[in-house]
Design a protein around this nucleic acid. Structure first.
Lengths: 266, 266
DNA sequence: TACCCATGGA
DNA sequence: TCCATGGGTA
């Protein structure tokens, strides 16, 4: 028996919006710890890791560990039927091949339940090792999204370079080149506009903008995004989910084969 | 000679928006009583009935009963040229095969007139008998629209069931099932958020969501919608038009042939 | 399916 | 006036 009651249902709606473009089908794993998901994107290049801790739910009952395979598009369709202020409850009976989403309007005058068939999905639960990163950039998520979108109108890949002074996003394409530098700025009054760079050593890595732009679908979840970089490790783009956990996107850097292609900063 | 002056011209604009998706051509009937229309939708499944009473017009002159066939798309195009605050006057000379729409801006600084050709349309004016309904549901129109839209992302038909406790909207589709229950709530402070159910006997009827979604184009006309249900009678979905009349949509229930298809609430 | 634009609400 | 949402287009 599974019953998870989430007062701020809009969180789950946003989470689905952030994931569904990247992943078609995935197993949601439910344990006493929380509600989590780990899945490769459909082209097996990027990895998504979601955690919603049990403490973030108003009510959390999970009698035994369970893995529920869902089609994220269908799940997303159903969650779109929840109001943004609705309380969402996820329910599954033991041994059932369906999951039920229940939506309660704030006034309790409208109660909806949506039942969805579960799927069998080969789960490939990768252990993600804790790693030391050469550099960790924390910046406003909207700014990062804007940069990725802007650069993708010029080129296909982005070089992210971190030095003491700041983080540089560079691309090059047929029509020209682009470099966007964000300086560290901790001094702003508003912490939600700070850009903070922790750097152990300089790093410069290249990524496909297509995936970065998918990752930025997580922007509505948090004002800030954290980008963790190490040479020869996948980048981690993380959006914290208030009081509950996070959604993390992993993407391996492009191997820099050709000097011309790898230094868009020209 | 016909001359109808409507100070709140936006009403007529909204009426057209509500009808034009459903009906292509229709006769507007004008008499001393008011300005009215009755038409089947283009697939001859649903019926629209509109009444704008003469008292709702600032000036209403209609020397003799007249029926004017109009292409609603063209009429709508013209009405879109009226500002939302404009005063609209509808004019037709006796024996003329055109109708003129005149728009006056609130400041009187801009006066437009649009002349449109009339059409000959076979009118099939059905008498709509007054009927007793098993149940009448009055609820916020936006909520009804939201429900129809949400359910149509899951299935093609909706079962509307009324009991003392509330009204239930159910559907089923390939990806699962959905049930939305709205409880009666007369106690809210704001009458525009009340859901009121008058029930003589329980009723459960199935309708095509496609038409329901067309009907909800009437939402901008009124905060509230009234849904009148009886077994073996067409449902009536009514939007009152302030001070003037109403727009009513009629749709026959689907005959429930197969138990499996007709009880989406599973 | 993803992006862009237009529209309606806060 | 700005933001968010929904519909249309590529």
């Amino acid at each position: 028996m599974l019953e998870l009651r989430l007062v701020q249902g809009s969180l789950l709606k946003k989470v689905m919006e952030a994931i569904k473009d990247l992943v078609n089908d995935a197993n949601f794993d439910c344990s006493a710890t929380g509600f989590s998901l780990q899945a490769m994107d459909s082209s097996h290049v990027a990895l998504v890791s979601l955690l919603l801790r049990s403490e973030g739910f108003e009510h959390y009952r999970c009698d035994r560990n369970i893995s529920m395979g869902m089609n994220l598009n269908n799940m997303s369709k159903m969650l779109k039927c929840a109001g943004n202020d609705d309380i969402i409850t996820i329910k599954a009976d033991d041994g059932s091949d369906t999951v039920t989403f229940m939506f309660e309007s704030p006034t309790q005058d409208k109660i909806s339940d949506f039942e969805m068939k579960l799927m069998d999905i080969d789960s490939e639960h990768l252990g993600i090792p804790e790693a030391e990163y050469h550099a960790i950039v924390r910046m406003p998520s909207a700014e990062f999204a804007r940069i990725c979108k802007d650069l993708s109108s010029i080129g296909d890949t982005v070089v992210i370079s971190v030095s003491k002074e700041g983080v540089k996003f560079s691309t090059r394409g047929d029509i020209g080149t682009a470099n966007i530098v964000c300086r560290q700025n901790t001094t702003v009054d508003k912490p939600e506009e700070a850009t903070i760079i922790e750097m152990n050593e300089p790093v410069s890595l290249t990524f496909a903008l297509r995936y970065m732009n998918s990752f930025t679908k997580g922007t509505p979840l948090s004002n800030m995004v954290t980008i963790s970089l190490s040479s020869e490790l996948p980048v981690v783009v993380e959006y914290k989910i208030a009081e509950m956990g996070y959604i993390r996107f992993y993407l391996a850097p492009k191997i820099e084969e050709d000097e011309d292609e790898t230094r868009p900063q020209a």
